[in-house]
Every structure is written in C-alpha cells, then in structure tokens.
Design a protein around this nucleic acid. Structure first.
Lengths: 221, 221
DNA sequence: AACACACTTCGACCACCATCGAAGCATCCG
DNA sequence: CGGATGCTTCGATGGTGGTCGAAGTGTGTT
C-alpha cells in the first residue's frame, strides 16, 4: 500500500506467519506456482473476504508479490529468500516428528519454491558437484556448461538475468544442501518437460520417474 | 512438561516467536550466553510472572533449554539450528532496512549463538577455505589441523562430540555463509581467550581488535 | 531456624485481531 | 449495455492470549 519500505521486527514478521490461515496460504505457495485469491481462500479454508485481508497483509510485508492477469490476481512468494526462510521454520517445526508415512513422498522429492528438494534434490546437487559440473564456489564449469546445454538449459540466457545462477538451500528433511537459484529452477523445468518427473497436483510432492537416475547418468557421459 | 515430542505446525511455531516479549527474549539469547529468568524478564520489559509463562512455552516447544544452577535457572537457545532459524527470520525482517548507524557494529562482527558472524565472520570463513584449512566438504585438512592446533583448538576433542564439526550458516547481513558448528564455536572462544576480540556487554556485537587480521595471517604462516 | 531470593501458579482483566456476510468496485463476456 | 465473475471494503462479533499483582514453592544464606 504505502510505497515506503517498512521496518519490521522479528515479532511482526512472525505474527504474519503465525495465523493458521496465512500459514496455510504460504505453505500452498511454497509449491512455487502462483495462485489466485479464490484458490488461496479455498486452501486456507476461509471466506474470500477473510482471505483478501490476509493477502493484503502478506503483500504489504513483501512476503508475497502480485501478478495481475486479466481479472485475476495471481499471488506468489516474493522471492526465493522468503521460501528459504519458510523452509527454515519448517525444519524446526518438524524436527521432533518422526517421518509418518503421509509425508514420505515429500521427503523423497518435493518442490521448494521453484527447484527440487528432498532426497532426490540433494542427490542431484551432490552429483553435479562430484562430477565437477559445478565448482566449489558454485560457478558452472566448462564441463557443466556442456552438460546443462545437453539437458536443454540455456545457461547463457540464465546468466543474463539478475537472479543468482546457483545457490544452495538447506533441505529440511535431509539437512544437507540442495541446488537453488536460476539454475536449480531451470533444471526442474527441464525435468518436467522431459517427463523425468511430474507434479503431484494436491501437494508439493514431486513424483520422480523410476529411471531418472539412469537417464541422468546417461546424459552425463 | 509432557515428555512426548510435540507435533507442531509452522503457524504454532511462528506464534511463539510472534509475541514481542518472547521475541525480545529470543533475540537476547541469540548472543549465545545463557540468561536467568529475571534477566530475561528485564530484557523483555515484562513482569517476572509474565516472563515465567513465556519461558515455559518456549522451553516446552524446545526452542529453549534450561540449565539449573543453584537457585538460578539459566535459559539458552536449544541449539544452533534454532539460532539459524532465527537468523533466517531476521534476514527477511530487516531486508528492506538500509543500515542505520546503530547496527553498523553488528554488521561488522557479532555473535551468532556461539560463533562469529558479520563481515569478520564471513572474512574468516572465506580465509579458512581459500587457505585450504577446510575442504570444500567442510572437513578439516591436515594443513587445517596443524593451524587450528596452533590456534589452541583441540580438534580431536571436538570431533569426539556429537555436534557436527563444521557447518555453514547464512549470514543475514552479508548474505554469504560463515562458519558454525563445534569448530566455529571453538574458534570464537579462542579469539576471546587470546584477546583478539571481546564482547560488547549490551548487545550481540563483538569488538574485534584492530590487528586481528594481521595476527591471524601471521599464525597461518 | 529464620530470612531472603528466584521463580512459578493463579485469577481477573483487557486488547487485539480473525472471522463472516453484505455491499461495493473492477474487469471480462455476450 | 446488462450480467456475471473475481476480489475488496466495511461493520459487528467473539475468542484467544498477553498482562499484572498476590500468593505459593523451593533453594540457598546467615
């Protein structure tokens, strides 16, 4: 609303997340896809008017960003840092819970904002590192450039964007890093396009096709 | 209270942090030193009875741990993961605030739970990496082992503890990683012992002595 | 044994804010 | 130019939870 950048303390930020309806909205948006106000109202289980009030607050605080499109307003997480902060909260919130069967799929593979997380995400990152496609400082090596191009990722186009190319993000289920940033997002997109994986429509889970590891390894050669 | 591990959702966790008094307590404990209930009541600006109620909730949720000592009860952050989660919140909460003069000391050097953060913390970590004292997977190299021993850190003793030896922690002011884990904590301890740095008693700030970088470099040789 | 100190429990009070429905705007469609 | 859809604003309501002081419990001190 007001254009000024708001000074926020940690309590004010936490109170935004502390409301169950808002938390459900944020969780829904952790999937990375932008959703309309109506969809978010449904996800949160509140009336449209209530949802509207919540969304205004989250947008004001720059936790969410709006993309207007026709008569729809699509809400998404403001950026990957917000997603990362939310993952950090989840890590603590779920730390004492021993994995129930319900979320085993999430632990296996899930979307973290716009890149791959979970066991498969960590596996992917460690593979890229050990094959020397990514240097220790997370720059793309010549070897990696060739590989990503084979995968269908336009590395040069990515590096022209303002977004950092490769970053790590601590995985709350594996407690080891996985790949984030523009490259992480692009890889997941290619995985979907190549049918190596597909989204579960009802959650953040990603269903990775069985021969994924083999396909990946083949492409490396 | 109850011995069972509580299932918590992200909203419940956030609501614990959302109260201003509790947030002030947590911030005070980010300094790493354990504090008594009375001290925390003072820091939060509430009556002892109110503070007691807050502290019970935070302890129940395993955000805090208690150390009984005589007729005092010392409260501290449960572990480094909790501290890291709080840093993540701070990163988002302060992201649009351009550095006021008041916190320039904090940006320069501060305690993050029990290790060094801020510009000096990031500098330290990058130095240890580039001198190959720490490998890319954050294990201690033979070269590093010798250096840390010279510094007065008993690496072998540290590696016998359950705590991970070296981890990274994203610095909210620098937005690059600094060193956490048992090694990070031990190094800061040695810096205090060697008078390379000293704590500011009123905040998380750390006053690093001017010749620190030179002393450090000399020891590397 | 008596006192002082550190902290907790209890009960009453009050403020904040999430919630809803109804009505108001805005945008697209026929 | 209606009419429908998507979303927001407004006003009223109610519950949750933070707050304090006073009294209670336990632990050292003299």
């Amino acid at each position: 609303m007001d254009g000024r950048l708001s000074l926020m303390d940690i309590a004010a930020l936490a109170s935004l997340i502390a409301d169950p309806a808002r938390a459900r909205m944020l969780s829904a948006l952790m999937g990375g896809t932008a959703l309309t106000a109506t969809e978010l109202a449904l996800a949160a289980g509140v009336a449209p008017s209530t949802a509207s009030s919540h969304l205004a607050k989250l947008t004001d605080a720059r936790l969410l960003a709006i993309e207007k499109q026709g008569r729809h307003r699509y809400f998404r997480l403001f950026d990957a840092d917000v997603a990362s902060m939310l993952e950090g909260l989840m890590e603590i919130a779920t730390r004492h819970v021993r994995t129930g069967p319900s979320d085993s799929a999430l632990r296996e593979a899930r979307v973290c904002y716009d890149h791959l997380a979970g066991a498969r995400g960590v596996w992917l990152f460690e593979n890229l590192r050990s094959r020397d496609f990514l240097s220790e400082t997370l720059t793309i090596t010549p070897l990696g450039h060739a590989f990503f191009t084979r995968l269908g990722v336009d590395v040069d186009a990515l590096s022209r964007t303002r977004r950092p190319l490769a970053r790590t993000c601590l995985d709350w289920s594996e407690r080891r890093p996985h790949l984030a940033g523009a490259l992480g997002a692009a890889i997941l997109q290619r995985m979907f396009a190549l049918r190596w994986a597909q989204r579960d429509m009802t959650s953040r889970a990603v269903i990775v096709e069985a021969p994924f590891a083999q396909l990946f390894t083949t492409l490396c050669a």
